[in-house]
Design a binder for these strands. Structure first.
Lengths: 231, 231
DNA sequence: AATCTTCGACTGAACGCTCAGTCACTATGT
DNA sequence: ACATAGTGACTGAGCGTTCAGTCGAAGATT
């Protein structure tokens, strides 16, 4: 019989946390695959964060996940599979954070402020994982590398859409698609910068100060760009 | 962190060309050490860029450098030593680029435009190496990791100094040290972003468009009329 | 000049070890 | 009885690192 646990976890975990037809498995029971892959990911992330992908051994992961090497390889075909699952999972969590940030959207420029704040808070919370993604992407098999990079762009695209929505409600015209795109990219990497340089930046600035400064920084450019019209 | 230290950088500069007392060697002849380490670095960089640090073998490096493994280990105590030398070398090249950019400085806001342009051009030229640094820093022994991270901040500090100089010649007051710092950090990572996302960004924007947009973006935050210099 | 000695850069086969991945076997549940 | 899930000792390739030995050049000795 299905354990309660299995059903419970299975409902929480999205496809990226476990079942992907891209990553085939020996085990038939899909719920079990989902659950075990969830365990693998949960075990692997902190190990990768602490020791990096290459210095982490499959045994460490298996042990931390609570089963044997052999068993782990029933759910995964290679160590790189694990890396890919981890990347999907991190992306997923970031995306969820951004989505929920966009959900409390107010309107107008206040929404922009809020967007920036919440995005930076997500980055602050996920700092280690975001750094991991930067270090690790190159080690992925190339078809998956591509997908992970595109996922990354996907998040920026969510910001683009939000910006466009804000611009229309604010009746701001004359911003080209390209400008929206670059603006969203800037916001994204302002978040990522905090994850890379927090060790240094936080000596002088709290996350709150950082948010305040960067909000003004972005807002200074936002209306200005439109009044200027085309470059 | 001091301006003194920035001026002092010259000594590190020569060290990173090969000879560092931090990295001891078996070989007596210092000139030879410098030369051979240069060869090692030149051989290692493209390999690291193409395959990553962990997937590159010491044999590959030795072969590409033109001598045997054993000989290489006369000039270096471990594979991580090589990584450290590579990091110093890359930092050095970036710093040289930035320095020369600051040398043709004009004055006023035009100088700021030029600073941004030249820095972004340096990033564009050094894209692969900059990416490598991001991926690799974590793999360094911790005392060297620290030093490499501080070097990175050092470059941002050069931009801070330049900004301050510009602000004083422009009689711009009321900008706090913290704001200069964050502004310089933003410029830095705007450059780094191009290295990470060039594969995507360059589909829509040439480097020139990117520079133009980012220049306006940064200048918008510099609280005065900069519109006259629009190029 | 001819021979011997010392020196130090250079070599690459060999060593010891790690670790991803396998497989013959056991346990469990239906 | 059968299918499915789980185990962990085992394998072998690949790695960083070492070290006994080579070689040519530069003194030193005859």
């Amino acid at each position: 019989m299905d354990k309660l646990e299995t059903a419970f976890k299975g409902s929480i975990l999205t496809k990226s946390r476990g079942v992907t037809n891209e990553v085939p498995t020996q085990v038939k029971n899909q719920d079990l695959v989902t659950q075990r892959r969830g365990q693998i990911i949960e075990a692997a992330v902190p190990l990768f964060v602490a020791n990096g992908f290459h210095k982490t051994t499959t045994r460490q992961i298996a042990k931390a996940a609570g089963f044997s090497v052999g068993s782990m390889y029933e759910y995964v075909n290679s160590k790189e599979d694990i890396l890919y699952l981890v990347c999907l999972s991190i992306h997923d969590e970031v995306e969820r954070g951004v989505t929920s940030a966009l959900d409390h959207a107010e309107s107008g420029l206040m929404a922009l402020r809020q967007l920036i704040r919440e995005f930076l808070m997500v980055c602050n919370r996920m700092a280690e994982q975001i750094q991991l993604m930067y270090q690790v992407t190159k080690s992925l098999p190339s078809q998956w590398k591509r997908r992970v990079l595109e996922n990354e762009i996907g998040i920026t695209q969510m910001i683009v859409d939000a910006l466009k929505r804000i611009a229309t409600t604010e009746k701001l015209e004359g911003i080209s698609d390209g400008e929206f795109d670059l603006l969203a990219n800037n916001i994204t990497i302002i978040g990522h910068m905090w994850t890379f340089r927090r060790w240094y930046l936080s000596q002088q600035h709290s996350i709150e100060e950082y948010i305040r400064f960067q909000t003004e920084f972005v807002l200074a450019a936002f209306p200005v760009k439109m009044k200027q019209g085309k470059k």
